[in-house]
Design a protein around this nucleic acid. Structure first.
Lengths: 204, 204
DNA sequence: AGGGTATACTTACGCCGTAAGAATCATCAA
DNA sequence: TTGATGATTCTTACGGCGTAAGTATACCCT
């Protein structure tokens, strides 16, 4: 009854379609669910068909992080550059939090592609007009990028404070007291980001 | 000829021995090589035997990160606390760099155990005698820990500057200029760490 | 009309994590 | 001494994985 496709009939698969479906699947069901067979099913195609658009699974995963990194708006800096740097950090964090299941991927594969290098170069230009020498600018970008990744990674493992509930709080009085505050992940991030950026500013 | 063991003969396996062998294998051949069968071979035991000392593979991986986190010397803070915080960051970084293959693990699983919470509580005590209120102290520890993880994670993906070689440098003049400096990963880390810690200090 | 090329499918191999159960050993009570 | 009990290990098997190799079909250009 159903009009089953046969061999040779193109279904119009493209690398972009594959990556989009992979991203959707990973977002929806997690990285472990993202297998070639499962992704094939999602695309209504046999697993091996995907290999016509992506050389292997690692390349597919690389494609996912490349897409995610590319989705970040290229930062623009004015004088002083601190505010632009905070904006950059926030949008990087937002991009990561938009796809929490991909965070472990980001943390384990390089995201250096020609396009991303171009964005980096543009940022360096922008920072130079804001008064930062290229070497210093690179250090600053590097510091902030790593910082954001770290904050997101450690926070996405679950806030330590949240894990206190099932434990005996009385054994950890200071922790219990510290956890009383209304601080959430966002506030903590802003607090640390402000500290880092202001520290970077006063140092160079 | 060889004295082959048979069923029932205990080989004296313990959870600790399993974790040690797993760590050694992951260090030597990477996370992908760390399969239950392969680990069994390493211990001269069938794969299923391992399940008597560890409920499943995820628990084994959790054990690895728990061990790694526990290997960090509990930080001690005096007045002012900034120097102790830098020491803590350095020893955390050293612990991570000592097992680079585990970094993706750290980045994807919680490391909250009773022992680690105890270390955290101790650190909070120490920070309070150094003049920091518990809530602020927790924020600071949280900021620095995430920062270190992020620096290690992004740096262990390979320095972007190192990846420039095969590319056309003339397209990215500022990047090329910035890469000329003698900055290595260590120097970059210290630079960013100093900025963060001093920023944290001047803020509270 | 016919051959080349792109696309998709099929089959198969060697891995993986682990559920279920059988075999052997050490210990101890009767 | 014997026999039951529990601890420890090995064996077998299942479903899933990534992907190499080969096959079939459809479209396009001459």
């Amino acid at each position: 009854m159903t009009a089953r496709r046969t061999r040779g009939h193109s279904v119009g698969l493209t690398r972009e379609a594959v990556l989009r479906a992979a991203l959707a699947l990973a977002d929806r069901e997690g990285l472990k669910a993202l297998s070639m067979r499962r992704l094939g099913a999602e695309l209504d195609v046999e697993a091996m068909t995907i290999y016509h658009h992506v050389p292997n699974k690692d390349a597919l995963l690389d494609g996912l992080v490349e897409q995610l990194v590319a989705s970040i708006a290229p930062p623009v800096f004015e004088t002083p550059w601190q505010e632009g740097m905070r904006d950059y950090a926030q949008s990087l964090r937002a991009a990561l939090l938009a796809h929490p299941n991909l965070v472990p991927l980001i943390a384990s594969r390089p995201a250096i592609t020609a396009q991303n290098l171009q964005a980096l170069e543009t940022a360096l230009e922008s920072l130079r007009s804001a008064g930062l020498a290229p070497a210093d600018a690179l250090d600053v970008i590097y510091a902030v990028t790593g910082f954001v990744v770290g904050q997101v990674v450690t926070a996405s493992e679950g806030d330590p404070v949240d894990q206190l509930a099932p434990l005996d709080l009385s054994e950890f009085p200071l922790l219990a007291e510290a956890a009383k505050g209304p601080r959430d992940a966002e506030a903590r991030f802003v607090f640390a980001l402000d500290a880092l950026v202001s520290g970077l500013g006063s140092r160079r």
